[in-house]
Amino acid sequence: MIKVLQYSFYDLIRSRWSYVYFLFYLVLGFALLFLNNSVAKSVITLMNIIIVLTPMIGTIFGVMYFYSSREFTELLLAQPIKRTTIFIGQYLGVSLSLMLSLVIGLGIPFMFYGLWQSAEMANFGLLLLSGSFLTLIFVALAYNIALSNDNKIKGFGYAILVWLFMAVIYDGMFLISLIIFEDYPLDKFTLIATMFNPIDLSRILILLKLDISALLGYTGAIFQKFFGTHAGIFSSLLVLVIWTIIPVYFIARKASKKDF
């Protein structure tokens, strides 16, 4: 597994897109700190960017890497390596290189700005953690889609749709249903509906940690009421872990049944 992971990782690290992604975060970090002139404010702005952007980049990179490494995959399949090792190794290679771009790209400007001395260290750490989780989750979803579709155009289309659904449409439907059913008690529905969308979950996770009640919104408020701040953070992290494990399990399952 380590060897496959290594090759995928180096392959991606050498590609231009990893640098572009890394430089984007680097520039973004410096720009936000320069404009906001405060770590705390920058973390909030960053949150809004990260929870939309990391899933999108994860989705696109995941699908792209799967299709472009088909040759490599076929080469590996004829070697004495377990199938799940090949696919999970590649998946981790993609995810880790993206996570590295995120963490280092944002880490450098914030360190320069004196993150260590600020009280925002834990908040910033949690932001990177949820960004990493979103990367892991969406790369895994993208891999599942790519494994099920041999047609690249279809695979790309479905993957982008999943991202669009989670990032935009889901919230819209959620809001509409809250308005339609406003006469009914919606606490449990809200709680469950939030769990089913990792993007919403990450948003709430960070807002709970930042402890800004004005930004929590209805879903965040319910989360806080139901779990309290600490249990809320813990349980949303736990659900993010589950969100990662399930698609990864399906990668392994799909991969072991596919013909090449």
Partner: peptide, 12 residues
């Protein structure tokens, strides 16, 4: 094994 079509990763 020698595959029918020689396809390899392009950038190595």
């Amino acid at each position: 094994y020698l595959p029918q079509i020689a396809r390899f990763p392009d950038n190595i």
